[in-house]
Amino acid sequence: MKGKATFEDNITRLGQIVSELEKGDIALEKAVELYGEGVKLSAACREQLDNASLKITEDSGNATSEE
């Protein structure tokens, strides 16, 4: 297994899951499995966005204090 997935990888996989679920022709068990995977990916994306936002905020604060 490769390292931690990138934000872009997670978004791509989320899109694939949404497409599969929207088709509506999958078994309930598979739909539940995909939904669970989607929830985990969504949480990972949220964490990645929060970390990026924090880094931007910190970098902006450092740039302001160096001037």
Rank of each mutant, 00 (worst) to 15 (best):
T57N: 05
Y35E: 15
T6S: 14
E29C: 02
N62S: 02
R13H: 05
E8W: 06
V18Q: 15
I17C: 06
V32T: 12
S53R: 14
K2H: 02
S19E: 08
A63Y: 05
L21T: 13
D25Y: 09
E8R: 12
K23R: 14
G3D: 11
I56S: 06
E33K: 08
V39Y: 13
L41D: 02
I17W: 09
S53N: 06
S53P: 01
N10K: 11
E33V: 10
E8L: 06
R46P: 00
A44E: 15
V32A: 08
G61I: 01
G24M: 06
Y35W: 04
F7Y: 15
A52N: 05
I56C: 04
N62R: 03
Q16A: 11
Y35R: 14
E47R: 15
A52Q: 15
A5G: 07
A43K: 12
A27E: 15
C45L: 03
I26S: 06
A27G: 14
I17L: 04
L14T: 10
N10H: 04
K4D: 14
N51G: 00
K23E: 13
E37D: 11
T64M: 01
M1K: 08
G24D: 06
A5K: 15
L34T: 08
V32M: 11
V18N: 15
A52L: 12
S65Y: 02
K40I: 12
A44S: 06
E66N: 03
L54V: 02
K30M: 10
Y35C: 09
L41V: 03
L54P: 00
K23H: 12
Q48V: 07
Q48Y: 06
S42W: 05
S60V: 02
D59I: 01
A27M: 07
T57D: 10
E37C: 04
E20L: 13
V39Q: 10
K2M: 09
N62H: 03
Q48I: 11
G38Q: 10
